Simulated scan of single mutants.
Amino acid sequence: MDNERYVRGWAKLKEVDGHAGEQVIASLSDIAPDFARLLIEFPFGDIYSRPGLDLKARELAVVAALTALGNAAPQLKVHITGALNVGVSREEIVEVIMQMAVYAGFPAALNGLFAAKEVFAKHDTLSCEPT
């Protein structure tokens, strides 16, 4: 793909989600390559690339939204990792997820907190591996 939206989106995806984002795109290559392209072009090429919010604010918003949905644990984990990648602190992630208890209920917030716990533990393990 060489259109401007795709190139811009691919760069933003790598900046935010790194290897996890690349894995999501790769996992779609055999079933829905056009959907993978749309994921790169629209959310990352068009929305994430807008100047109105920095990446930290965008990722906090996504963590909040996915937590509130309550049925998107795999995507929530990817975006918690993305939030860490762009400089959001663990405390900020936990606070945003806890805030969702007010609007989405305790079950959604609990699911979000457990997803965060899993991501944090994996992040710690990866940080300790020799390079």
Rank of each mutant, 00 (worst) to 15 (best):
Met1Leu: 11
Asp2Gln: 14
Asn3His: 11
Asn3Trp: 13
Arg5Gln: 06
Tyr6Leu: 12
Lys12Pro: 01
Glu15Tyr: 13
Glu15Trp: 10
Asp17Gln: 12
Gly18Thr: 07
His19Gln: 12
Glu22Asp: 09
Gln23Trp: 03
Ser29Ile: 06
Ala32Tyr: 11
Ala32Val: 09
Asp34Gln: 15
Arg37Met: 04
Arg37Lys: 13
Leu38Gln: 10
Glu41Arg: 14
Phe42Asn: 10
Asp46His: 14
Ile47Thr: 04
Ile47Asp: 01
Gly52Asn: 14
Leu53His: 11
Leu55Glu: 06
Lys56Met: 08
Lys56Ile: 08
Ala57Leu: 02
Ala57Arg: 06
Glu59Arg: 01
Leu60Gly: 07
Leu60Ile: 05
Ala61Trp: 04
Ala64Thr: 11
Thr67Tyr: 02
Leu69Val: 07
Gly70Thr: 11
Ala72Leu: 07
Lys77Tyr: 02
Val78Ala: 08
Thr81His: 12
Ala83Trp: 02
Ala83His: 09
Asn85Val: 10
Val86Glu: 00
Gly87Glu: 00
Val88Met: 08
Val88Glu: 03
Val88Asp: 06
Arg90Met: 01
Glu91Ile: 13
Glu91Cys: 07
Glu91Arg: 15
Glu91Leu: 11
Val94Glu: 09
Glu95Asn: 13
Glu95Val: 07
Val96Phe: 00
Met98Asn: 09
Gln99Val: 00
Gln99His: 12
Val102Pro: 10
Ala104Arg: 02
Ala109Asp: 06
Leu110Trp: 05
Leu110Phe: 10
Gly112Arg: 03
Leu113Gly: 03
Leu113Ile: 08
Ala115Ser: 13
Ala116Phe: 02
Lys117Pro: 07
Glu118Phe: 03
Val119Asn: 10
His123Gln: 07
Asp124Cys: 11
Leu126Met: 11
Pro130Arg: 02
